[in-house]
Design a protein around this nucleic acid. Structure first.
Lengths: 413, 413
DNA sequence: TTATTTTTATACCGATCACGGATTAATTTC
DNA sequence: GAAATTAATCCGTGATCGGTATAAAAATAA
């Protein structure tokens, strides 16, 4: 535990003010006082310091007239130019990149078709480098202007070290992705699971705004899990992110354990179809879900069966999450949601059936469908969170072992 | 979020010092400086205030001579008389009580045979009252001397409100146990799941000392779960504690979901035996596990099968915990462990088999067998933790809604 | 017995920080 | 142009921490 000295106090309040400015757009100092419950003096001092450090800028133009007389408020915003982040979201058939400014506003966006199926790390890192350079150029910037890179991908990731322990996209286990990207681009790099990235996006920009505790389940080609606890992502030992696809959904009587991924991943659903090959083809163009819906409505019995099975399995998994974590809200996101009721009906029904009665009604299920860019933006947000320098260490046993690309420390001033 | 002012700073350091004194027995001020990394000045001021408040006392007797010359250190300890707590652990066949002082040292201990099978709240609260009065008398005290009461029992409990949503011991759902105890004894009361209580015991007194992150699975007549995260128990919405017995361990193909409890609870194991009735009889005297072992070694095929099944199911459940939370360590506790290898062999083997490869070796399994008193002491420790007044709100969405028996607030001074 | 040494605990000083009240600044309204 | 109003800052106070110096207490040595 840290000892509490004036420095920490200042760091906490500073972060609090910075976070308030981030969340509540252009905001006047008085309003910061109200929201943070800090004194006007303190806010004035801290904002002065933030402006001095170039993180915050007064907004002269477009002064909102606050109703009437009196000295007009000077609105403050994050200084967009304080940093540039590249966020990347990778899935088997697409790579999506955004360049954001210090506010998390998107400067440029790029979606690239790829086809990643257990590729060597060197291939993946090459593709990322390529995408990053393109997207940065598209934003009218150069690589030197980029402060951090943040990559989100499905699988089991060590946040601290940037090591991808396992992913459907990478051939080798324990791939040192962050290290590889630092070597290629010379930019400090964060690697995180796609579920955690999109959870951060929902928390900062999306439907989970101001919701400190929730769970998110991502239903893509892989199935991921994110647990937000008191505004911080829950991470396991070594900063490991969870991977819901590895959850076991078979009973003890089966000889071999059956994992959720083998039932509920998009590929698993497709495999039930009467025309697997052509569905796989549409998957490559990222339109598997729509195509599946069409087939189901066309009467593909196999598909109906596998979708049902997937929905039920997911319902059971969610029930177990409710049993173990009892989150106030559970978000469902990801491309598989395009299946709509064909997946959700069974999911909701099974969940309702399988939730222990005492926990009925505790966890509200919310379906959210952020676009690809939101995921990438969430990745960028993870990097921004580091830059804002929260005084509380990142949650979980693995302390912020920030990637040593250029700077080693990012504390305080 | 709280604003950081000098008061908070003081509270943090004060708690830090108090916690250091608690953990490291009689300890000199200098050593507190080293451990907390606070300056001698600060430690001196804080300890003076703690002594002034009667929470800490200098220990004149038995001064440890620290090697040689120089001014001898004055050892400080928690003032045992600062508070008296009653901790209760309830299981279907036993009620165990301890009275502890402010240090958590046991002043008196009492084990009572009971037989609780979905009893009305009024019966349970009567039995608790009776036990508490006996145990307090045994300690040579009166009820008036008791600061708080803390009850641990299996089931789904709302920590904040002291409401037992469901438990095998209580007939009605949503039993307001804390309220009932306050009405009976007039003592502020905490109610918590038995798993959380024993986790707190392991954290403060047992094998998990100084281990900030771990998961604990309690294998008793019920199966419980506790997640310790950064030294705080993880609680869900409304302060709900998890109940692992409600976990579903069947696949999506089963018509009705099968819960872990129906396979791995002691009662479920017993049900497999060729001589159920006499085993139930031994269970009543709390010696089911030993008896089961005897029968298994005597060749009770049904029992062997059900024990195996239980072990496998638990292994799967643990694998799923590893998948979702990746804790550095998992503690197994509870009376079912007396089954020894008859349960553990299958459990460990299944766990090893079912753990996703990328997570192999992340979570270390530790078997611990604290006695009944330790559970009750853990309950008392939960109450003590509240009294120490940690400046960080209790973890989870439910903020410290401390039971309003006598005092309403327990902050700071 | 007395002086020295060694270690512990506290007192004093200067630093930073948050806060409250007074002050200055920038508008609108009369 | 003066008054009113609201926003932001300046100044003094009280609190904390840290560092250094000092007082206290005991063992050791003369």
């Amino acid at each position: 535990m840290k000892t509490a000295d004036p420095e920490l106090m200042r760091a906490i309040n500073r972060f609090h003010v910075l976070d308030t400015i981030r969340r509540h757009g252009p905001i006047a100092r008085v309003e910061i006082c109200e929201r943070t419950e800090l004194s006007a003096t303190t806010v004035s001092a801290i904002t002065a310091s933030l402006i001095d450090d170039g993180l915050v800028a007064p907004q002269h133009i477009g002064d909102l007239r606050n109703g009437g007389r009196g000295r007009p408020r000077v609105m403050l915003t994050l200084n967009p130019d304080a940093a540039c982040i590249v966020g990347v979201k990778i899935s088997p058939y697409r790579m999506h990149l955004v360049v954001t400014d210090f506010q998390g506003d998107v400067l440029s966006e790029l979606g690239l078709p790829v086809r990643l199926d257990r590729e060597p790390l060197i291939v993946l890192s090459y593709l990322i480098e390529d995408g990053v350079r393109s997207c940065v150029t598209k934003a009218g910037l150069t690589i030197e202007a980029i402060t951090s890179l943040s990559v989100a991908l499905p699988g089991v990731v060590e946040y601290g070290t940037g090591c991808v322990r396992a992913s459907a996209l990478i051939a080798e286990p324990d791939a040192q992705l962050a290290e590889a990207m630092v070597a290629r681009l010379g930019i400090p790099t964060i690697v995180e699971s796609d579920a955690n990235a999109v959870a951060q996006a929902e928390y900062w920009f999306g439907e989970a705004r101001a919701l400190e505790d929730f769970v998110l389940v991502s239903l893509e080609n892989s199935i991921g899990l994110a647990v937000m606890h008191e505004g911080q992502l829950f991470r396991g030992a070594l900063g490991l992110s969870p991977n819901l696809g590895d959850l076991i959904v078979s009973g003890p009587d089966r000889a071999a354990p059956v994992r959720l991924a083998t039932i509920a991943e998009q590929e698993a659903i497709i495999a039930g179809s009467e025309d697997v090959e052509s569905l796989r083809e549409s998957a490559r163009s990222g339109e598997a879900a729509q195509e599946i819906v069409k087939r189901i409505e066309g009467g593909d019995e196999g598909l109906i069966l596998s979708a049902t099975r997937a929905g039920k399995s997911l319902g059971l998994a969610l029930a177990n999450i409710v049993t173990m974590l009892a989150p106030p809200r559970i978000f469902l996101v990801g491309s598989s949601l395009a299946l709509g009721d064909h997946l959700l009906n069974d999911l909701i029904a099974t969940l309702a059936d399988a939730t222990p009665e005492p926990l009925a009604g505790v966890s509200e299920i919310v379906v959210s469908m952020p676009g690809d860019a939101a995921w990438a933006r969430g990745a960028a947000a993870l990097a921004l969170r580091e830059l804002y320098g929260a005084p509380w260490s990142t949650t979980g046993p693995a302390r912020h072992a920030y990637k040593n690309g250029i700077q080693g420390e990012n504390h305080g001033r």
